[in-house]
């Protein structure tokens, strides 16, 4: 995929659009006609060329615009980045991890040179060149976690492992599906997952936690999660719910193709070497129903998933008000034919 960075917005006039290449590589999350929560964790191994999983961290055509949107959100609400005092080692681990993987996978855009502890970081798309001393926060314009968190698409949570569970003790969260970092920071696995319906009886969360507790440095993992968003808005935070909640009333059968977006999170988890923390990366991909329908197989699939979604998941994901409108809009693509399993577009 070519890296021509688009100028676009994720608020106000919402000029965000996907190019045909971005649609083609969209991480469509439905291999079957039904969806229910499961322990859908797999190794984060390199995907095919051009796929969102080709590299450790995916940089795409929306990189510059997303970093700009993140900066706006952080300026309006600095509380979207928080880190408890004992997370400093994990912050440096995060900086090293992000700088090294970006410089390795996208050498034209990023470079990192090291002379002992004297490092120089160059981020060409954002026009940044920074020399600093690794381990000395005073040599950076802000904490190491926020510094690099602002230069990678998506949200990040740093997890501390103790008391047989994981604690969300740091985060930079500006493109979340309706959860609050300021409220959740310092919570344990069961607490922050508290509101998710159905999972207790499915046993999903207990098994997933057990798996993550033994995550190894050499074997990162990933999973996909999804919800829906009206307008291509990254910042669907509870903090700003008064700004976006009302958009749910605007959807009807005519405009659903444009307004309604499938929101997919590519979640990846990496064990850090020094702090033993886990970096949890939540990368959000948006696609409008119209864009999705350029591949009728996807439109058929999503029509069936959305139509038959468990009512608790409909409510939890905030889809109740416009579910019918979107299902109606999608129904024109669904002739009922068997489309087999798999997430491929064609």
């Amino acid at each position: 995929m070519s890296l021509a960075f688009k100028q676009e917005t994720f608020r106000d006039d919402y000029t965000f659009r996907n190019s045909p290449e971005a649609i083609r590589r969209f991480p469509f999350p439905f291999p079957e006609d039904q969806y229910m929560y499961s322990v859908n964790i797999e190794p984060h191994t390199a995907g095919p060329k051009g796929a969102v999983t080709e590299f450790t961290l995916d940089v795409d055509e929306h990189y510059v615009a997303e970093c700009r949107d993140k900066a706006i959100t952080l300026e309006q609400d600095p509380g979207r980045c928080a880190s408890l005092p004992h997370m400093m080692d994990a912050e440096w681990d995060f900086l090293e991890f992000t700088m090294e993987s970006l410089a390795r996978d996208y050498p034209e855009q990023f470079s990192l040179s090291k002379n002992g502890k004297a490092w120089t970081w160059i981020n060409r798309p954002l026009g940044i060149e920074q020399s600093f001393v690794f381990g000395d926060a005073a040599t950076l314009p802000m904490g190491p976690f926020e510094y690099m968190g602002r230069q990678v698409q998506g949200d990040f949570v740093l997890l501390d492992q103790r008391e047989d569970t994981l604690f969300a003790d740091a985060g930079i969260v500006t493109s979340q599906a309706d959860w609050s970092l300021a409220f959740n920071v310092g919570m344990s696995w069961n607490e922050w997952h508290g509101p998710v319906p159905q999972v207790t009886k499915l046993g999903v969360m207990d098994r997933a936690l057990k798996f993550l507790m033994s995550l190894q440095q050499a074997n990162p993992v990933r999973r996909l999660n999804w919800t829906m968003t009206i307008n291509p808005r990254l910042d669907t935070s509870p903090e700003n719910y008064p700004l976006w909640g009302g958009d749910r009333n605007k959807v009807n059968e005519q405009n659903a193709g444009e307004l309604a977006h499938l929101r997919v999170e590519l979640q990846t988890l990496f064990r850090m070497p020094r702090s033993n923390a886990i970096v949890f990366s939540i990368r959000c991909y948006l696609i409008s129903m119209q864009e999705m329908a350029t591949y009728p197989r996807w439109a058929k699939r999503f029509h069936r998933v959305l139509r038959d979604l468990h009512p608790d998941l409909v409510e939890y994901k905030g889809i109740t008000k416009y579910q019918q409108a979107v299902v109606a809009w999608l129904s024109r693509f669904d002739d009922g034919a068997d489309i087999g399993t798999g997430t491929q577009p064609e």
């Binding site: 919570m187 607490e191 508290g194 207790t200 608790d312």
Partner: peptide
């Protein structure tokens, strides 16, 4: 939500 829904942070 179905009966039995209970937020585990409480």
């Amino acid at each position: 939500m179905e009966r039995g829904y209970w937020i585990r942070s409480k």
